[in-house]
Computed example of a mutant assay.
Amino acid sequence: MVREILDLVGDKWTLYIIAALKEGPVRFNEMRRRIDGISQRMLTINLRGLERDGLVKRTLFPTIPPRVDYELTEMGGTLLAPVMALVTWANSNQENIRGARVRYDAS
Rank of each mutant, 00 (worst) to 15 (best):
residue 53 D to S: 07
residue 78 T to Y: 06
residue 105 D to R: 15
residue 62 P to K: 05
residue 60 L to N: 13
residue 80 L to C: 01
residue 64 I to W: 15
residue 101 R to I: 09
residue 6 L to V: 15
residue 3 R to P: 06
residue 74 E to T: 10
residue 58 R to C: 03
residue 46 N to A: 05
residue 47 L to Q: 05
residue 4 E to D: 07
residue 107 S to I: 07
residue 39 S to F: 08
residue 16 Y to V: 03
residue 78 T to N: 05
residue 16 Y to S: 11
residue 77 G to H: 01
residue 27 R to N: 11
residue 24 G to L: 00
residue 33 R to L: 10
residue 87 V to W: 06
residue 36 D to Y: 08
residue 43 L to Q: 05
residue 25 P to S: 11
residue 42 M to Y: 12
residue 27 R to V: 09
residue 43 L to W: 07
residue 48 R to N: 08
residue 82 P to N: 03
residue 42 M to S: 13
residue 15 L to S: 05
residue 73 T to W: 00
residue 60 L to V: 10
residue 106 A to T: 03
residue 14 T to Y: 02
residue 98 R to A: 14
residue 54 G to K: 02
residue 45 I to M: 08
residue 103 R to Y: 14
residue 66 P to L: 04
residue 37 G to W: 10
residue 9 V to M: 08
residue 70 Y to R: 04
residue 54 G to L: 01
residue 97 I to Y: 15
residue 52 R to W: 10
residue 18 I to F: 01
residue 106 A to M: 13
residue 71 E to T: 04
residue 25 P to V: 09
residue 40 Q to P: 09
residue 48 R to H: 14
residue 21 L to S: 00
residue 104 Y to L: 10
residue 49 G to N: 12
residue 75 M to I: 05
residue 48 R to T: 09
residue 103 R to A: 06
residue 19 A to C: 07
residue 103 R to Q: 09
residue 22 K to L: 01
residue 1 M to G: 10
residue 88 T to S: 05
residue 21 L to C: 00
residue 53 D to W: 07
residue 37 G to S: 11
residue 41 R to Y: 09
residue 37 G to A: 08
residue 81 A to T: 05
residue 76 G to N: 03
residue 4 E to S: 10
residue 72 L to F: 00
residue 52 R to D: 12
residue 57 K to A: 12
residue 80 L to K: 02
residue 60 L to H: 06
residue 82 P to Y: 01
residue 78 T to H: 10
residue 72 L to G: 02
residue 35 I to L: 13
residue 99 G to P: 14
residue 96 N to D: 08
residue 2 V to H: 15
residue 11 D to A: 15
residue 63 T to A: 13
residue 64 I to D: 15
